[in-house]
Design a protein around this nucleic acid. Sequence first.
DNA 1: ACCTGAACACCGTTCAAGT
DNA 2: ACCTGAACACCGTTCAAGT
Lengths: 208, 208
Amino acid sequence: MSEEKSPVTTGARRDSYHHGDLKRALTHAALSLVAERGPKGFTLTEAARRAGVSAAAPYRHFADKAHLLATVAEQGFLELHTALTTTAADAASDPAARLISIGRAYVRWAVDHPDHYRVMFGADNDKAQHPSLAVAAGQAFGDLLDVITLCQAAGKLRGQEPGQVAGPLWSLVHGIASLAIDGELRNVGIDQDPEDMVADALSALFGR
Amino acid sequence: MSEEKSPVTTGARRDSYHHGDLKRALTHAALSLVAERGPKGFTLTEAARRAGVSAAAPYRHFADKAHLLATVAEQGFLELHTALTTTAADAASDPAARLISIGRAYVRWAVDHPDHYRVMFGADNDKAQHPSLAVAAGQAFGDLLDVITLCQAAGKLRGQEPGQVAGPLWSLVHGIASLAIDGELRNVGIDQDPEDMVADALSALFGR
DNA sequence: ACCTGAACACCGTTCAAGT
DNA sequence: ACCTGAACACCGTTCAAGT
């Protein structure tokens, strides 16, 4: 029998006994798995298989399955943060327009990466158990806070505390994103594009 | 206080070979399990154990684990629907006040039944696979639609199509509920009571 | 019609042992 | 330090067999 082993996944080498970049290979495989079989279909054993290692190998890099998923979620928040800041840089100078742009960007990223978004807000990630995940989530939230502060400074948005308005605004944006991703909106007969929905709702905020 | 509880849900062994009300006992055990160990901790085997039957018995009543969870979710939407209609009956005659009341009631029910709510909106329930679940969800959504239609008829809310405003409104309410349940709001330093948050946001909708 | 018991193919996790 | 292989205690699901 030939010693033909499992095919090497993206950018990983198995030329030696040691993998080399197993941690990255595992998170990558995890995300692919979630995309292919849904968040529930993710399996630590299968992720290890795709990385070309034994089922026990991941435990050198992650305490358990939940920690691997938390790392994937954390990466998602970093990517979302990047998407939001990039949008903010390109946005118009009008604060209200910037808020609408960032709202659109948030929903667009979520709809474009539904599986990643589900992992980020899955009920199984215990933020108390994964501090760096909480930090990354807070960073993405900070992007929202910044634009809100801008709007308030320009007198476009009432309220004194940015957090006072950031709560409902984040909820609106997250609600649209997650209901759209799960198909709940279409289920009740709402076919409007989720991105347009945020834009409309936010512009109504500024008196149309 | 009522003694008409379900027969054998408390783990007490039945006296006959047949259970009698296994279907109900299983959904009841499932909900308790989700409450105790989280949505991820739910196990079909353990639910069967609590109902006092073998691990294979549930398959006489549910096609698989997902169908049991879908049934639990469906019950949740029915309960939510009841909570919303009860509130609507008690609410003031002013349409705007009614909308605020129903928004409060939605978030209150979700926060009071976090585990049930998670099952209802968990990523694992495939509405296409469980039509009656979609119907129950649509019924709860209908409660929202009704009040919105009332508001529009009274000129309190602009827009011609109720669905046009129901989408963002449901998203806002669902976003607040789910972020509150998962502790995301507190995580970013927002300590406001979620019920008050909906009320504030909705009253702002009516020009304060 | 409803339930049991045994069976199968998995998982997550641990641990001694190899490189 | 990193990985393997075997082991353990589970699960979900199926099926022949009991009541």
